[in-house]
Design a protein around this nucleic acid. Structure first.
Lengths: 127, 127
DNA sequence: ATATCATATAAATGAATGTTGATATGTTGA
DNA sequence: TCAACATATCAACATTCATTTATATGATAT
């Protein structure tokens, strides 16, 4: 019999009714690409290190290079990526170009993801 | 003269002193790879749609396929990726395999990133 | 003007990723 | 056992991405 399948289909229908009212955290589908785009910017360890470093105030490229011990072109590349996602702002001062964190909420996001990772990993080992 | 450069170097040194005390949101370097890994899982629009859909309760693969109008192998692939990052849990029930959101905080992260994206884009147009 | 410093860009490469189409595995009901 | 369904895996492909090395652009000081 196909009872199980039919029940399954009904559950699907019920669960998809008015999805936006069930949880205020639900986002509209149109906003997901932007979220994915920002998340992609946060998906590289070196970029996260850069963001964290410049969160202490504007930093020049050479300062980032020295602090993170990465090659200058690599840092420039990642900064270009971060600029493309608007996560950093740029300001020229004399020969230096300073990069600054555009929105401190990305630090909150990083912090939350870190906690989630810790919890998920510890739960993983609990069995 | 090299005064400017020297001053620059001093500023760098001052700003990097005791970085962990300056802002409690600063993470240890060792935790950044985990954050990057989770962010990578959130960096695809289809995966975000899946996460959002299953946030309403456990969903079978076929339910996801129908709701999101994606091919079944593609959904399976993304679910495998989400499982790899521990963001979803799996439970077999009869012929169906149900996926569930492992941690609702990823919804908060998505929401925050959405707000950040909105604000950054609107600031972009303000000039 | 020119040498030096700060940063960006270009070219090349290897690795990872998203997607599709075809096929395999596993479960259920007859 | 067998047919039908649910899901996973495989192979192939195009694309993106992180990184390196080399070079170009732009600002400053002499």
């Amino acid at each position: 019999m196909l009872e199980r399948r039919i029940i399954e289909q009904e559950k699907i229908k019920m669960n998809t009714l008015q999805p936006s009212q069930k949880d205020k955290r639900i986002l509209r589908d149109e906003s997901l690409p932007s979220v994915a785009f920002l998340a992609k910017s946060l998906s590289d360890g070196n970029r996260l290190r850069i963001l964290q470093f410049i969160s202490g105030g504007k930093k020049s490229v050479s300062a980032i290079v020295e602090e993170l011990e990465l090659s200058q072109p690599l840092v420039s590349h990642h900064l270009k990526e971060l600029k493309r996602s608007l996560l950093v702002t740029v300001k020229r001062e004399g020969p230096f170009i300073y990069y600054e964190l555009a929105d401190s909420r990305v630090l909150d996001v990083m912090h939350t993801l870190s906690e989630v990772a810790t919890d998920l990993l510890s739960a993983r080992k609990t069995f």
